[in-house]
Design a binder for these strands. Structure first.
Lengths: 246, 246
DNA sequence: CGAATAGTGTCTCTCAGACAATATTGC
DNA sequence: GCAATATTGTCTGAGAGACACTATTCG
């Protein structure tokens, strides 16, 4: 039983030369999220070259011919932002490949989602004028280069959902943290205040989420009882989930 | 998202050489899942050409130069399996692009996950010897072409997780179905028996999950009380989730 | 002491797991 | 009637939201 190729595909196949293939380029783009000063923020660059010169964009770039996708993402992360791989959570967000997303040529972008602790201001890479943090809420509505608005929206929604059923909020803080710091991460990402007492019960009651470190944290500027310090435990999921307030 | 380039950019584009960027081929691969005869199953093809000739593989193929990724996936779905887009659930699973995943050239594959009702045996496309359903459990451990073993595993795990917190199990059955049919989908995908009474309470108690159709279903071969028929409701999530039995 | 933050305890309601009992069919 | 499936109901324990109360620090 042989299938009859449709005209468009047949035409393409007829002109297909095994030594060549359709001119696709592959890039990685990063949705690098953090919580700084209590604000859920994303790292954006200002483009210094065409196309979209002067517009804000997600950091990213072309994948090298022999480079793994994940490796390309981590390389850009370390080079352009100074975040080390093991200090952050990195996962693939998905592929974005509308035919007209880049006016230069056909480009498929593989987007990565990164959760990082608060960082010093990173330094610009090539082709970018500046690189800095923006509050996620402020960027909402601003038009970004390429389809980066869509990519960012997908990353933000995924981040919000992941806090519900994974312990990944800990990727937004340092290696040692208090329950209050963790709660402020949830509040910033979700944009909702949470009850400190119920939150404390949930996170300390979930097995393997938090491992006590033994000594207390230094007291903050406003006074108050010193909080216990924790490290991330080996838990990989929150079951049942901690649902976002409606 | 069409954009008018400024004059200077247009000039720059005219002199632009696409060959400066590393060349990639882009394919789509489909993890097409269904439940047939009570068994969670995946559609696989036997390859008839190099590389991996004779091995089992996920159906898929090259993305055309001007084709959207989703469109490429849906096109292959309809052509090679006869599933119509609106009869199934289609979502992107992710990109797979290890440098050595295809011995011929550098290929990035964008995998799609499809939930479909039970279908007649589809017909093979070009480059494939045969196409048929395999029980997911039987394929586990069999070595598939390329990195399709990994892709399949990711799709299966995503499917199992999605049943927990979405109403997508309904994509595995026809437009009208009974609570028992829906329960058997869950049982097949999760590989665990569920309590019919508790299941009934959960799905009928979740607002907008099921819409009663009014008339009952015909009685099955073994007799038994006729079940009420339902259609999928507008709900998009199950909150709280229906967790898999540990 | 008062303000601020951390942490414990209590009450109530929702919901999931276990399972009894009833309803409606084919044979 | 009996076997099979559907559906309703009941009991119980885990867990989440609301919130009182205690603990420990700074100024």
């Amino acid at each position: 039983m042989t299938r009859q190729p449709p005209p468009d595909e047949a035409a393409w196949l007829a002109s297909y030369d095994p030594g060549r293939f359709p001119p696709f380029a592959v890039t990685v783009d990063m949705v690098l999220l953090t919580v700084r000063h209590g604000t859920f923020s994303v790292l954006l660059v200002e483009r210094d070259t065409h196309p979209f010169r002067g517009d804000l964009a997600l950091p990213g770039g072309f994948v090298l011919p022999d480079e793994d996708l994940d490796a390309a993402a981590v390389r850009r992360l370390e080079r352009e932002t100074g975040v080390r791989r093991d200090a952050a959570h990195v996962e693939q967000l998905g592929a974005f490949g509308a035919p007209d997303r880049d006016p230069r040529m056909r480009v498929v972008s593989v987007a990565y989602l990164v959760f990082a602790p608060d960082l010093e201001a990173p330094s610009p890479g090539e082709g970018t004028r500046s690189v800095s943090w923006f509050a996620v809420d402020e960027v909402d509505g601003v038009s970004l280069a390429f389809d980066h608005g869509q990519v960012l929206a997908a990353g933000v929604e995924r981040a919000r959902a992941k806090l519900e059923y994974t312990p990944l909020a800990a990727a937004f803080v340092g290696p040692e943290f208090t329950v209050g710091e963790l709660r402020r991460v949830y509040e910033a990402v979700w944009g909702h205040p949470l009850d400190p007492r119920n939150f404390h019960r949930k996170v300390t009651g979930t097995p393997d989420f938090l491992v006590p470190v033994g000594h207390p944290a230094p007291v903050g500027p406003g006074g108050g009882r010193p909080a216990a310090l924790f490290r991330r435990g080996p838990a990989t999921a929150l079951r049942p989930a901690m649902l976002r307030p409606s």
